[in-house]
Design a protein around this nucleic acid. Structure first.
Length: 156
DNA sequence: GCCAACGTTGGC
DNA sequence: GCCAACGTTGGC
């Protein structure tokens, strides 16, 4: 079956917890701890080979730090049934998992983080989901046009 | 550290 | 099924 058209995404993480440098070191990592239904549903749409912007939240400089590639499509997030994990959720079981994660592989780190404020100034990104007021979703789709516009802003 | 904006929970 | 209260996210 022919591959669906490539999709693009943005995933947020606090760099002090897990940042682009951590991903570069590990090469591939599972993206655990997503506990929001909309974000989960987006992850479940991800296909191997989809491209991902790695966004650093909460700490300066806030913005897009690099890119990653989806390496493994959605599978159960085991932290949801680990009682010791802060992501434990007793509604999720091995038989009926509630939460899912994907694996992503490091692709690139930008020379400088493309800052949020620069993203906001870009006309081409006016409609970008993650820039909408009050948006807190940690996983959002990105259009091809947005993907290209941001890559053009990044020094690599 | 503050707080606006949001998603979720739970009482009714 | 409504909606107030609560907890969390994340920019500042």
């Amino acid at each position: 079956m022919p591959r669906a058209r490539r999709q693009y995404w943005l995933m947020k993480s606090e760099p002090s917890v897990f940042g682009i440098d951590d991903l570069r070191k590990k090469k591939t990592a599972h993206w655990d701890g997503v506990r929001n239904y909309m974000a989960r549903n987006y992850m479940m749409q991800m296909k191997r080979g989809d491209r991902v912007f790695f966004y650093h939240s909460s700490e300066e400089p806030v913005g897009i730090a690099g890119t990653a590639v989806v390496a493994r499509e959605a599978y159960p997030d085991h932290t949801s049934w680990d009682r010791k994990s802060k992501y434990f959720d007793r509604r999720s079981t091995r038989e009926r998992p509630l939460w899912f994660m994907v694996d992503v592989s490091f692709e690139s780190k930008f020379d400088d983080v493309v800052p949020l404020e620069a993203l906001r100034r870009q006309r081409a990104l006016k409609k970008m989901i993650t820039l909408r007021q009050g948006n807190r979703l940690s996983v959002t789709p990105v259009t091809e046009a947005e993907w290209k516009a941001i890559l053009a802003m990044a020094k690599r």
